[in-house]
Computed example of a mutant assay.
Amino acid sequence: MIISVASGKGGTGKTTIATSIALALASDNHGLTFIDCDVEEPNGHIFLNPKLEDAKEIYIDVPRIDNDTCTYCGKCADLCAFNALLCTGDSVITFPEFCHGCGGCRYFCPEKAITSVPKRIGKIEKGLAKDILFARGYLEVGAALSPPLVDEAKALAGREITVLDAPPGTSCPVIHTVRGTDFCLLVTEPTPFGLNDLDLAVQMVRTLGVPCGVLINRAHNGTELIEKYCQKEQLPILMSIPLSKKIAEAYSRGVPLVRVDKQWENKFRQLYRHIEELVANERNNYN
């Protein structure tokens, strides 16, 4: 079972929810892997306190031009969708920061004047947070391309249950995180901005064909906004967490929600059982 925890915007509490699920299920004797896919700003370690024991540097291939062979025809620059090459007539300038490592320029160069050199984009760190296998991606400062790093982190999914903490938004890194997972838990807040971005996230998840449900965080009097939307879209609301000073203070100290009150541990276990049922029903319908 691979569960991704995502949201249409930042600050909704994804990491709070993802780490709470991991801790609640790990204490229930489930084999648990937690992967922080928010590679630009990973913060799952704040709540799980892993002991990191291994690191692997991640590279992509970027082009290098052989000026003795190149005829400056400009085909490489024309086909690059990301403007990582510029042909000026008597030289080809490369912009490695824009390169997505597809290798198209090298493949289509008529003179075979392009070779590849590795460019470091970040690293994957692994370790243990007590019984939880922990991993996170860490994007190099100044690097613009995070999906390959997300994919490398996701490749570490294993054990009985894997929880993926997705980046915020609905862009490429989020798509790479959510795609292929068994279920996506969408965390939202009961505000107009939260509703707008929840709708974007729902459209993304449905396009990917991943079943999803909603968790309302910081629930208060405005939850009717989210409830009406979910009813219209036939989305299950799986859990609500109230707006609470106690929870906020614990969060500010890096204390996981399941450590605030024992009831939350039981509620997150119940949440997982509900997700299991939804996934089983989805698979039965598919078959």
Rank of each mutant, 00 (worst) to 15 (best):
I2M: 12
I2A: 05
A6E: 01
A6G: 05
G8L: 10
G10E: 10
G10D: 10
T12Y: 04
T12W: 13
T16K: 02
S20F: 08
L23T: 01
A24M: 06
A24E: 08
G31M: 06
G31F: 02
C37Q: 11
D38H: 03
E40D: 15
P42W: 08
N43C: 11
I46D: 02
L48I: 04
N49A: 12
K56Y: 06
E57C: 00
Y59K: 12
Y59P: 00
V62Q: 07
R64P: 01
N67P: 00
C70R: 06
Y72E: 07
G74C: 11
C76D: 06
A77M: 04
D78I: 08
L79P: 01
A81W: 01
N83G: 08
D90R: 07
T94M: 02
T94R: 03
P96I: 08
F98C: 06
H100E: 15
C102Y: 03
C102K: 03
G104I: 01
C105A: 03
K112W: 00
A113T: 05
V117L: 04
K119H: 06
I121A: 02
I121F: 03
G122V: 07
I124R: 09
K126Q: 14
G127F: 12
I132A: 09
L133F: 15
V141L: 14
G142F: 13
A144N: 13
S146D: 11
P147T: 05
P148R: 11
G158F: 07
E160N: 04
T162A: 15
L164S: 07
D165M: 09
D165C: 10
S171V: 01
S171L: 00
C172L: 07
I175K: 09
H176Y: 10
T177D: 04
G180S: 08
D182T: 03
D182P: 01
C184N: 14
L185G: 07
F193W: 08
D197P: 05
L198P: 06
D199A: 14
D199G: 03
L200R: 15
T207Q: 14
G209H: 11
V210G: 02
P211A: 12
G213P: 09
I216S: 01
I216E: 00
A219W: 05
A219M: 04
A219R: 14
L225C: 04
I226E: 06
Y229R: 12
Y229S: 10
Q231D: 14
E233A: 15
L235R: 09
I237D: 11
I237L: 10
M239I: 01
S240E: 15
S240W: 00
I241M: 07
L243M: 13
L243P: 00
K246W: 02
A250S: 15
A250I: 07
S252I: 08
S252V: 11
R253Y: 05
R253A: 08
G254P: 13
V255Q: 14
L257H: 08
V258R: 09
V258E: 10
K262E: 15
Q263M: 11
L271I: 12
Y272G: 08
Y272T: 05
R273G: 02
R273P: 00
H274R: 14
V279S: 05
N281L: 14
R283T: 11
R283A: 14
N284H: 13
N284T: 13
Y286G: 01
